[in-house]
Nucleic acid binder design. Structure first.
Length: 422
RNA sequence: GGAGAGGUGGCCGAGCGGCUGAAGGCACAGGUUUGCUAAACCUGCGUAGGGGCAACUCUACCGAGGGUUCGAAUCCCUCCCUCUCCGCCA
């Protein structure tokens, strides 16, 4: 959420920022409503002032034992006027809120302006694709042959793009979760959280999923609750409507949760196997930081995610999203893509974003700035560390042998209790 | 699910129709004093929005939303949440 005053005073740049993100929003109308609201406010506040001072007089007269009937009769009319104007103010305020919730977070000045995916920028790459002297198999073949994933039964239980891990597949899933959580909590200093997987509307609003992405989420109608699309949602909302101590910042959390996504209209290309599924596991990192360090923190957060791939010895590249590819709420975002030789593609396994104060303002997450003594919004960041299915793809496809087995990456052997999946 | 109690500022906690934006305490900031640590005393200290170049001023906010009233933290209704007891249950 952007501050109304900020929008009012920076109308042109907010318009350009929205256009750069390819968001359509009638900002002129918003500004017009805002002016209307302030005008109404002036009128009604003047009446309220009159009412307040009249009330004082009535109280005084009553204390003095005088009759206040005339004053009371006069104020009845004023009261009715106030009631009517208050109604109008509320109406306009609701329209403002509705429109304001659709104003995207402007991209940071360093973000390249672009028209689409093709304008994203390569930042760096790590590792070299392994030399495979045989025809690499796609992960779904490997996984089925080794009895790790049951695609058909997943579909039977829930529908297309739902999968079931079995045996060593399930074990690999658990091993990866533990490996990643251990790394982030023990080495990178994050506190582990296990939040609810189902959250309410306000929670979804704060992180920016609502109102824009309502159709992309699973919803429990009876209770008006949503299945989380990422741990970012519950974990960022941990401190909603809270005043944090400046000394407590930065706050760093790591959480494992399943993630639920309807992926409406995404069926078809590039969705085979584990590439795009409705429910997947992910370890997520979330940080609450002081505004002045958030961009520094974004780089270290990215580093934490990269380290997972480095330890797994999986080649990857980092790209910076251009304005057109940046999400509604993010100000800057890096994607990490891992190399998958079987499907011959780079697959996104992590998104590391700085939301600046956009989510904090929506969720009212503040800290007391000791320099000014005033409350200030924190900056929130999050990054996947990592999403599991595509990490599994990369492991299966990069570590496959020509005998159809898969070598277990060294850092996972302890967690897997085996050196190879045969 | 049933019965009861309760939700007040960064935190604790009083108030239960007008003199209350809200006592008191803690925390925090500034100052005085005591040779350090610490303590005592004094002063200040909510948030948001509007108006004004400014000093300043107005309005709103006591879980949320309605209602009663000239006037609501205080009375009434609905909802949400917390706690205690009972029931149910992985």
């Amino acid at each position: 959420m952007l501050d109304l005053k900020f929008i009012r005073e920076n109308l042109d740049s907010v318009k350009i920022a929205a256009r750069n993100k390819r968001e359509k929003i009638d900002l002129d109308h918003l500004v017009h409503l805002d002016a209307q609201r302030r005008e109404l406010l002036q009128t009604v506040e003047q009446l309220k002032q009159e009412r307040n001072s009249a009330s004082q007089r009535v109280a005084q007269m009553k204390r003095d034992g005088e009759s206040a009937d005339a004053e009371i009769a006069r104020m009845q009319g004023v009261s009715n006027q106030i009631k009517e104007l208050d109604g109008k103010v509320r109406e306009v305020a609701e329209q403002i809120k509705a429109l304001q919730s659709w104003v995207p977070n402007p991209a940071h000045a360093s973000v390249p302006v672009g028209a689409g995916e093709e304008d994203n920028v390569d930042v760096k790459s790590w590792g070299k694709p392994v030399e495979i002297d045989f025809q690499p198999k796609p992960h779904w073949e490997i996984a089925e042959q080794l009895g790790m994933v049951d695609f058909a039964r997943g579909a039977k239980l829930s529908g297309a793009s739902f999968i079931t891990y079995i045996g060593r597949g399930a074990r690999l899933e658990r091993a990866l979760i533990n490996f990643m959580l251990d790394l982030h909590t023990e080495k990178h200093g994050y506190q582990e959280v296990s939040p609810p997987f189902i959250v309410n509307r306000q929670t979804m609003f704060s992180t920016g999923q609502l109102p824009k992405l309502e159709e992309d989420m699973y919803h429990v109608d009876l209770d008006d609750l949503f299945l989380i699309p990422t741990a970012e949602v519950p974990v960022t909302n941990l401190h909603r409507d809270e005043m944090l101590q400046a000394s407590d910042l930065p706050k760093k959390y790591a959480a494992y949760t399943p993630c639920f996504r309807r992926e409406a209209g995404a069926h078809g290309k590039d969705t085979r196997g584990l590439v795009r599924v409705h429910q997947f596991d992910k370890v997520e990192m979330v940080q609450f930081v002081r505004p002045e360090n958030s961009y520094e923190v974004l780089e270290t957060l990215l580093g934490h995610a990269e380290e997972v791939l480095q330890l797994l010895q999986l080649p990857y590249r980092v790209i910076e999203l251009c304005t057109a590819d940046l999400s509604f709420a993010a100000a800057k975002c890096y994607d990490i893509e891992v190399w998958a030789p079987g499907v011959d593609k780079w697959l996104e396994v992590s998104s590391c974003s700085n939301y600046e104060s956009f989510q904090a303002r929506r969720g009212n997450i503040r800290f007391r700035n000791e320099e000014t003594g005033k409350p200030d919004f924190v900056h929130t960041l999050n990054g996947s560390g990592l999403a599991l299915p595509r990490t599994v793809i990369a492991i299966l496809e990069n570590y496959q042998t020509d005998e159809g087995t898969v070598v277990v990456p060294e850092v996972l052997r302890e967690y897997m209790g085996m050196e190879a999946i045969k």
